[in-house]
Write a protein that binds this DNA or RNA. Structure first.
Length: 171
DNA sequence: TAAGTGATCTCT
DNA sequence: GAGATCACTTAA
């Protein structure tokens, strides 16, 4: 079953947690289980791009949930995010790892994701969407850690355990 | 451990 | 327009 838009229209931490074990589906037929995500929640979260205000780049995070936010980092790597929570509240979940693929930039490279997907909805018409295929990850197999590469946000935000991963998920 | 790479944002 | 910054990967 394809995840409906209202799956994403909930608090970001809940969406991030629930996305583990769901599948990212591609119009070429591939479907890979999500094993690692990070939450970026709201204008007060200094690690969230939208904390710097509403700009052309972050505009999509202020929009409706269930849309992709794709951007280039370090001039080389594409990052894949999904917008969460209600409209006008900037938040998103970064997809960091899929079954057999660890690393957010490896994932976008493998799926040939780039800015063409930015602002599009998670729907077959866009080429990528999410499905629940009945997999349930037991809570004891979900590990929480601080987010990666966000030291610039200061200790209060950099240490929040907003990275979720499935134990042994990348194997 | 450091370099590579370019869009974006914040000044002039 | 110029300069700094950056949610990463790879090869040493």
């Amino acid at each position: 079953m394809m995840l409906p838009m209202d799956f994403f229209e909930r608090p970001t931490l809940i969406v991030a947690h629930d996305m583990l074990g769901k599948f990212l589906c591609c119009s070429d037929g591939r479907a890979l289980m999500i094993t690692e995500v990070e939450a970026y929640d709201g204008p007060q979260d200094l690690a969230c791009h939208a904390a710097r205000g509403r700009t052309p780049r972050t505009e999509v995070m202020f929009g409706a949930a269930g849309h992709f936010y794709v951007y280039l980092i370090y001039g080389i790597h594409w990052m894949l995010n999904v917008v969460t929570d209600r409209k006008d509240y900037p938040a998103a979940v970064l997809i960091r790892g899929l079954e057999g693929i660890s690393g957010p930039a490896r994932l976008t490279k493998a799926l040939k994701i780039d800015k063409k997907l930015n602002t599009l909805p998670a729907h077959p018409a866009s080429g990528f969407w999410f499905e629940d295929r009945g997999t349930r990850i037991p809570s004891r197999e979900i590990i929480k850690t601080p987010r990666i590469g966000v030291d610039y946000a200061g200790p209060e935000w950099a240490t929040k355990p907003w990275r979720f991963l499935v134990k042994n998920g990348s194997s």
